[in-house]
Write a protein that binds this DNA or RNA. Sequence first.
DNA 1: ATTTGTGCAAATCGTTTGCATCTGA
DNA 2: TCAGATGCAAACGATTTGCACAAAT
Lengths: 143, 143
Amino acid sequence: MVGHRRDADLPDDAVARLREAGLRPTRQRRRLADLLFRQGDRHVTAELLHQEADESGFHVSLATVYNTLHQFTAAGLLRQVVVDSSRKYFDTNTGPHQHFYDEAEGRLTDIAGDDITVSGLPAPPAGMAVASVDVVVRLRPAR
Amino acid sequence: MVGHRRDADLPDDAVARLREAGLRPTRQRRRLADLLFRQGDRHVTAELLHQEADESGFHVSLATVYNTLHQFTAAGLLRQVVVDSSRKYFDTNTGPHQHFYDEAEGRLTDIAGDDITVSGLPAPPAGMAVASVDVVVRLRPAR
DNA sequence: ATTTGTGCAAATCGTTTGCATCTGA
DNA sequence: TCAGATGCAAACGATTTGCACAAAT
């Protein structure tokens, strides 16, 4: 039984993805999911995604963008990346990998997880285990 | 020519350090410098340093703590560490090294720069140069 | 005397939350 | 129907800033 198709121009990849993640495929989630997942790996801030939605003629409240990003993250569709102590970035690539960060532009780029290796890690302090090893290569304009 | 000694109990390491850095050794800078540099490598947030000053009976405004941390950073006495997207950490160790970060406690620990090695770094995008390679090993309680 | 720093309170920025209203199954 | 989602505006926490006052050279 197929429901009414409200956004006939959008494919249902998003819907399937959302359902699998246990999230109700609401209109705003579908649209945001489309923006996020239809163009390869992306790195967005809430502000950026909100603006992008807006420009594509889809109006969502910023609060909903935040909520959605968090829900997607909790559902494992996104991952947070810490590269800036004042903005939160969300990454559509949830696999193991690292990042280039262009501070001036606020732009993130992936470094494939199998390119880079960190060796010589000391043992973590007693009672602690390693949760993750995050590498950020900060970039500046070449001289 | 030696000036009047106002805080007879404090050594003048701080004063020398400040002068070398081109900063006027004001009372608050001396006290904050003492808190920062007299006990080996430290990692503080403005809030933490402010509170510490307060507890040691020295009252400074939070704004001054922020200003001072920034001035010290600009002068090369401190370095900022990005490990959390909502707090700013300042590190008294300005040399090359990396960090353990205990997210639950908000505590940073140094990893000596010569322990750890990052290899397999891809070349930075055209027109960009590597400014720094930052490694953060996130810790969680061992189960 | 002049320059530089400090403190306070108000302003800002990104993010989060409470709650009335709306929507999807 | 009705649990769950959305939007708005207000609340928030960390940080920054403007400006009158105070301290350092």
